[in-house]
């Protein structure tokens, strides 16, 4: 506690603040935290629906992600089985208990084995349902919890993310507002903004995929 008082006291003296006559500064801070105003939002993502979705796919593919699209949730299991097969991966994946995932007709996907829960060492593919997408940068936004455990996006060899087409926003700010609407100020433990598969350029600035996280990222747009 003493360190906190020392540091804050030093800052106040340096700023020439008298803590007992500090109402104006306190108001300014409270107001800014309440208002959480937006700064310049790039025009890039401000597009009609289909063009926005196209931008999302283009931006993600530019950073080595792959994308696909299905018209309804019922098509997801077969689309995922086909994707894993095309990539030469074992026909199994792990997912959380998101009701949208629970309700899918997994039996249609034939040999696809679907496990649930947080990721385990040796998992080849992890599946999460995104909270939203951001067209501006090709980013998927996932939130932690039993519905979609965080580790599913990081531990398996391949990360697969489902993004509902109508949640793909033009910009990051729209998604921040949606998070606030859904969770208030109590954000989930982890909010992940994911833009492509894991990479490193630490060896001679040579870009390599699959540093620690997934070697590949596939985003399947639903709707």
């Amino acid at each position: 506690m003493k360190a906190r008082e020392h540091i804050l006291g030093k800052i106040q003296r340096a700023l020439e603040v008298d803590p007992s006559h500090d109402a104006a500064r306190r108001r300014a801070v409270a107001e800014r935290l309440q208002r959480h105003g937006r700064h310049t939002v790039p025009a890039r993502g401000q597009l009609p629906d289909e063009e926005r979705i196209a931008l999302f796919r283009r931006m993600l593919e530019a950073v080595a992600g792959t994308t696909g699209r299905v018209t309804s949730r019922a098509e997801v299991p077969t689309a995922l089985a086909a994707h894993l097969e095309a990539r030469g991966l074992p026909l199994r994946l792990r997912r959380g208990s998101d009701p949208r995932l629970e309700e899918m007709p997994w039996e249609r996907a034939g040999a696809l084995e679907v496990a649930t829960g947080p990721a385990e060492d040796g998992d080849t593919a992890g599946l999460v349902y995104a909270f939203a997408g951001i067209a501006e940068t090709g980013t998927s936004v996932a939130v932690s919890g039993a519905d979609n455990p965080t580790t599913l996006s990081f531990l398996p060899e391949e990360a697969i993310i489902l993004v509902d087409a109508d949640t793909i926003a033009g910009d990051m700010e729209t998604v921040l507002s949606a998070l606030r609407t859904r969770y208030g100020t109590a954000l989930p433990r982890t909010v992940n903004f994911i833009t492509g598969p894991s990479r490193s350029a630490d060896i001679e600035q040579t870009l390599l995929l699959g540093a620690h996280g997934p070697r590949a990222l596939h985003v399947l747009i639903v709707g």
Partner: peptide, 24 residues
């Protein structure tokens, strides 16, 4: 920094895992 529009992983970490969270 790297000329990326967005780094691959931007993560907001808030507090410890919540009740019912299976990881974190």
């Amino acid at each position: 920094a790297t000329g990326q529009d967005m780094s691959v992983y931007t993560t907001m970490a808030t507090g410890p895992r919540r009740e019912g969270d299976p990881d974190g």
